[in-house]
Design a protein around this nucleic acid. Structure first.
Ligand SMILES: [Zn+2]
Ligand SMILES: [Zn+2]
Ligand SMILES: [Zn+2]
Ligand SMILES: [Zn+2]
Lengths: 168, 168
DNA sequence: CATGGAATGTAATAATATAACAGGCGCCAT
DNA sequence: ATGGCGCCTGTTATATTATTACATTCCATG
């Protein structure tokens, strides 16, 4: 079956409530970004990205710090620093509606407008880049003379899995 | 000139950087909502809405508390309580990208998907309801079996005024 | 080895938001 | 009227999210 050209979701297959990311792929992208910028892909950055990729779901910064703490306590500020790098690298997104962060294994174009669909029940996030949405947004912006630089498009709702399995 | 049917912005007229809301109209709507729910449109709620309407720009909750404080100090928690009511009443929106709140004098349909355009320079917010965007979003949701309940659509960028007057 | 830029570790603090609870006020059924 | 009940208020405390400041360490380079 051909893929719908107006959609490129990160989940949607048969795994039912497991949406872990391809950790190797995303780590490679982060490493490549670091190299291209001449900055190191440090252990802390790897640990944060690894955790997010394994989790497959959005996590709060303090939750990440908590999980990464062993003998030595990882402070939230260290997590925020790593997240900053990872977001620049395009490997992690921030959910404004939840103040949470999640790993992404897509390669987004620079002008692309991506929709985050966040399930209120299970917390899973699916991404979809919609050309129709992008055209609509650029349309309303143009009408009012507004120059859009950074779109935030989030749908809170219920994912397919949770709709079919009401409570779990 | 006829209004573009795919656009209904809250600013965009000739006032240049002043976007104060019709305070009377929005207060009336809040009052009507309160009456319909059988709950009071209390002094605190009026004060918060009045301030936001007069300001015409997004304000942080603590900033509102600050401005409303006179002899007696208004605590943030009281502001949050008022904001909760005002958001239910549809008179105030929350900007997820800024954790800020602003008054709205539109009457939004229940399934409507509204775009908030936030100017990084001057902080002004314009709203536009786009049918094209709504169709696009419902499209990507449907493709992945996602049931959207609460959309958050924010464009950070530069408004027409600030584009023409680069620094101010 | 010296040095400068970047990342780290640590502490403190700012900014945003909610919880908990006592008291007051209006409304309504007794 | 009066007592109960629901909602709002005032107040304090706490939770959650994010940033600032600064001394130290690491490391590539000269
Ligand atoms: Zn992505
Ligand atoms: Zn779900
Ligand atoms: Zn509105
Ligand atoms: Zn502007």
């Amino acid at each position: 079956m051909a893929r719908d050209p107006d959609q490129s979701a990160s989940g949607g297959h048969a795994e039912a409530h497991r949406h872990a990311i391809d950790a190797d792929a995303v780590q490679s992208r982060a490493r490549a970004y670091a190299t291209s910028k001449g900055i190191p892909f440090t252990a802390m950055r790897q640990r944060v990205l690894g955790l997010l990729a394994a989790s497959g779901k959005p996590m709060a910064a303090y939750e990440i710090a908590e999980k990464l703490s062993d003998a030595r306590r990882v402070q939230a500020v260290q997590v925020y620093r790593a997240l900053e790098f990872l977001q620049e690298a395009g490997c992690v997104h921030r959910l404004a509606s939840q103040s949470a962060y999640f790993a992404c294994d897509h390669l987004h174009g620079s002008g692309e407008m991506v929709v985050f669909m966040v399930c209120s029940q299970c917390g899973a996030v699916q991404e979809a880049a919609s050309d129709l949405v992008a055209r609509g947004l650029r349309g309303v912006a143009k009408t009012t003379g507004f120059k859009p630089l950074h779109p935030i498009i989030e749908l809170e709702g219920e994912c397919a899995d949770c709709t079919s399995e009401p409570v779990g």
